[in-house]
Amino acid sequence: MDAMDLKLHQCFIAVDDHDKAIAFYRDVLGLEVRNDVGFEGMRWVTVGSPLQPDVSIVLEPPAASPDFSPADREAMAQLLAKGVLRGVIFTTESCDALYAKVEESGADVLQEPMDQPYGVRDCAFRDPAGNVLRFMERAA
C-alpha cells in the first residue's frame, strides 16, 4: 500500500453534552451536522466543514469503547472535565474574524490571535466540553 493513497476520513473528540457541542460546532463554527446516532445509551454526532465533505469529526462520549471498564470511563470523564484531552486544529482564511465570532459566543478563550514563529497566525479556545481547539491562518 502506498502512503499516497491515505487520506483522513474521521477524527474523534470526546464531549460530555452533545446538545451543547452541537450548538458550538454547528451554530458558532458553522460546521454541518451529518449524523446523529444513539446506541446503548450513548450518542455520536458527526460534524464537518462543508468545504471538506470527505472529512468528519465525530463528537463521542468519553470512553465510548465497550472495552473500557467503569474505572476507565470515570478516569476519561475526569480528564475531559480537566480539559486535558487533545482537540483539533482548524485552518481559516482569517484568524482574527474567526476569533471575534467565537469570542462573541462566550467560548473560553485560551489564546488571542498571535503570529507564531513557525509561520502561522493562530488563536485557541475550549469547546463546551473543555477540549482545546486551535484555529490557524497561514502567514502571507
Rank of each mutant, 00 (worst) to 15 (best):
M1I: 09
A3H: 12
A3T: 10
M4F: 14
M4G: 13
M4C: 14
K7M: 06
K7S: 10
H9T: 11
H9S: 15
C11V: 13
F12Y: 07
F12R: 00
A14M: 06
A14N: 10
V15Y: 02
D16Y: 05
D17M: 06
D17I: 06
D19H: 11
K20H: 03
K20G: 01
A21R: 01
A21I: 11
A21Y: 05
A23E: 13
A23S: 15
F24W: 05
R26E: 03
R26D: 02
R26C: 02
R26Y: 04
D27T: 01
D27A: 04
D27I: 06
D27W: 06
L29Y: 09
L29Q: 04
V33L: 07
N35A: 14
F39Y: 11
G41P: 04
G41H: 07
M42A: 13
M42H: 12
R43I: 05
W44H: 03
V45M: 01
V47T: 14
G48H: 05
S49H: 10
S49A: 14
D54M: 09
S56A: 13
I57W: 02
I57D: 00
L59F: 09
L59I: 10
L59N: 00
L59G: 08
P61A: 14
P62L: 09
P62R: 06
P62C: 05
P62Q: 07
A63Q: 05
P66A: 14
F68Q: 08
F68I: 04
S69I: 09
S69F: 01
S69Y: 02
R73L: 15
A77H: 08
A77N: 12
Q78I: 12
G83H: 03
G83T: 08
L85P: 00
R86H: 12
V88F: 12
I89L: 14
I89E: 13
F90H: 07
T92V: 07
E93W: 13
E93M: 14
S94W: 12
S94K: 02
D96V: 01
A97R: 05
L98Y: 10
A100Q: 15
K101T: 09
K101F: 09
V102T: 08
E104M: 12
S105H: 09
A107P: 09
A107Q: 10
Q111K: 15
E112T: 14
D115E: 08
Q116W: 00
P117W: 00
G119F: 01
G119I: 03
D122Q: 04
D122F: 05
C123K: 01
A124N: 03
D127G: 13
G130Y: 10
N131R: 11
N131Q: 12
L133N: 00
R134H: 10
M136Q: 13
M136W: 01
M136A: 08
E137G: 02
A140F: 11
